[in-house]
Amino acid sequence: MTEEIIQSSSETMKKVAENIEKVMKGQSSAIRKLLVAFASGGHVLLEDFPGTGKTTLAKALALSINMKFSRIQFTPDLLPSDILGVSVFDQGQQSFHFHKGPIFTNILLSDEINRASPRTQSALLEAMAENQVSIEGTTYRFDDIFFVIATQNPVEFRGTYPLPEAQMDRFALKFSLGYVAPEQEVAMLSSQEVRHPIEDISACVSVEDVLQLRHNVKKVRISDELKRYIVDIVGATRGAPGIQLGASPRASLALIKAAQAVALLNGGGFVVPEHIQEIAAHVIAHRTVIDPQARFSGVTAESILDDIIKKIPVPA
């Protein structure tokens, strides 16, 4: 991969980031992670308090790339057919027509995914895994670019169905937006005085650029030593105290791809240890299951990952 290709892909990502930044001020780190997940071809799980701008973020991303965007609000009475689509009987023609559900889109925002019943959750998650939907014998494929941003509300616990651990693997990254610094919040208030900035967003890169970007991410070089480092980190979660179920090899795959995306975002053609350490916790933490007893001692998956990273000597 030549230097120009690297630079062009890096430019693509930077342009999108700046564009989104216009709307979401003070969230540069979250925007970086979002783009990393997007470029590496994985999906994102956002766990955040209500009102921090999750929908705005997804919309801004979609608008920056000029792609289709749809949003599903999950409720306890949501049916799988509400997501995937339903075969409607047309009485006039005496035949069934398949009306595609909101999942047939490029960027999908699934709000409060833990509110729906497990049956509905698995419908979405299976579709994410397969990139296609089978209804009554017919298979409908998604577009090339299919990116899901699922959100969870950590505060409401009543009436929620937490995502099953085995399905958490579907999400490449999990992170949160959080509240911004006071200066940023003031700036946000000022910017939204007349109209919402999202209405002024326009596309800055094309779909081809994005496809090229995804292709280039896979070409980023990574040395064997760093692959071993990644495997060591993931392997350490399998025996760490306080973890009941460690991360699977799927985590290692996701981490490599994410590290490559980070390298490309920084304008480099190869991965260095800093890239790995930057997103390791976000890639691995949600795939582990904490021992319930340990959880009540205040241990979180992120803290265990932090300890693991501090224990393993980094290649230098």
Binding site: P76, D77, G159
Partner: peptide, 10 residues
């Protein structure tokens, strides 16, 4: 169920 009267019953 759900004890969330703001949302419909499962």
């Amino acid at each position: 169920v759900a004890l969330s009267t703001s949302v419909a019953d499962s």
